[in-house]
Amino acid sequence: MIINNLKLIREKKKISQSELAALLEVSRQTINGIEKNKYNASLQLALKIAYYLNTPLEDIFQWQ
């Protein structure tokens, strides 16, 4: 199981879903879906999320 901390980290950094989506060149709905565990981010997208949030990938998506 993967624990998804994207919403928590994004909100801590005061970045909206729309802002993050624009940086990543995806839709806001994609970010929303990832945060609600409706969609799994591809490895490429997960790495981009970590880069733009300046946060280690394993802090955003944790295996349990």
Rank of each mutant, 00 (worst) to 15 (best):
M1Q: 10
M1I: 12
I2E: 05
I3Y: 08
N4Y: 02
N4A: 03
N4D: 03
N4M: 04
N4F: 06
N5D: 04
N5V: 05
N5Q: 05
N5S: 04
K7R: 14
K7L: 07
L8Y: 10
L8A: 15
L8P: 08
I9P: 01
I9V: 11
I9D: 01
I9N: 02
R10H: 03
E11C: 10
E11Q: 12
E11L: 12
E11A: 08
K13Y: 07
K13N: 11
K13H: 11
K14P: 02
I15N: 00
S16A: 06
S16V: 04
S16H: 04
S16T: 13
Q17E: 04
S18C: 11
S18N: 13
S18W: 11
S18Y: 10
E19F: 08
E19D: 11
L20C: 05
A21I: 03
A21N: 02
A22E: 11
A22V: 11
L23S: 09
L23T: 07
L23G: 09
L23C: 10
L23I: 11
L24T: 12
L24E: 00
E25W: 05
E25P: 05
E25S: 12
E25N: 15
E25T: 08
V26N: 01
V26L: 05
S27K: 08
S27Q: 05
R28A: 14
R28N: 07
Q29R: 14
Q29D: 15
T30F: 13
T30P: 00
T30I: 15
T30W: 11
I31E: 01
I31C: 04
N32S: 15
G33S: 14
I34W: 04
E35K: 02
K36Y: 06
N37V: 03
N37A: 07
N37F: 07
N37Q: 08
Y39M: 13
N40D: 10
A41F: 12
A41P: 15
A41W: 06
A41I: 15
S42A: 04
S42I: 04
S42H: 06
L43G: 06
L43K: 11
L43C: 14
L43T: 08
Q44H: 14
Q44W: 11
Q44A: 14
L45Q: 05
L45P: 00
A46D: 00
A46K: 11
A46P: 00
L47A: 11
L47I: 12
L47C: 15
K48C: 08
K48E: 05
K48A: 08
I49F: 04
I49T: 02
A50T: 03
A50P: 00
A50S: 11
A50C: 05
Y51D: 09
Y51I: 08
Y51N: 08
Y52T: 10
Y52A: 13
Y52H: 13
L53V: 03
L53E: 01
L53T: 03
N54A: 12
T55V: 12
P56E: 07
P56Y: 04
L57G: 03
L57T: 03
E58L: 09
E58T: 11
I60W: 02
I60D: 01
I60E: 01
I60L: 12
F61K: 01
F61M: 03
F61A: 02
Q62G: 12
Q62P: 12
Q62D: 07
Q62A: 10
W63D: 05
W63E: 05
W63Y: 09
W63P: 06
Q64R: 11
Q64M: 09
Q64V: 13
